[in-house]
Design a protein around this nucleic acid. Structure first.
Length: 94
DNA sequence: AATGAGGCCCTAA
DNA sequence: ATTAGGGCCTCAT
């Protein structure tokens, strides 16, 4: 399999249904690197999947905290709420 | 509850 | 080939 880590991440994130979210750890596990949670974030930020159609705003931290976003946390929260995700006190309701 | 420190993994230049 | 950075995670104090 020539699938790069990055590609897997894209695929997983792309497959996140609307109104749903995943944590970096979940994604990392799905791609086969439970400890690459950091890499996932890095990829989503640098590779900026959103430019390729990757809703990186649907990925949050394992604590339910929002984490970060290229455009800022607020934008992320806003987008999430728009998609149907409920945010409570800076955290996501799973 | 908040902070510090360490650990693991990737991408880009 | 190497360096530096990063949207993290978890434990301990």
């Amino acid at each position: 399999m020539v699938t790069s880590f990055r590609k897997k991440v894209y695929d997983v994130v792309k497959k996140i249904p609307k109104g749903k979210i995943l944590t970096y750890k979940e994604v990392a596990e799905k791609v086969g690197r439970p400890k690459a949670c950091r890499a996932v974030g890095s990829i989503l930020n640098k590779s900026v999947g959103w430019r390729k159609g990757i809703p990186c705003h649907r990925v949050v931290r394992s604590d339910g905290n929002i984490g970060g976003y290229n455009k800022g946390e607020k934008t992320k929260v806003y987008l999430l709420e728009k998609e149907g995700v409920i945010i409570q006190k800076r955290k996501v309701v799973r």
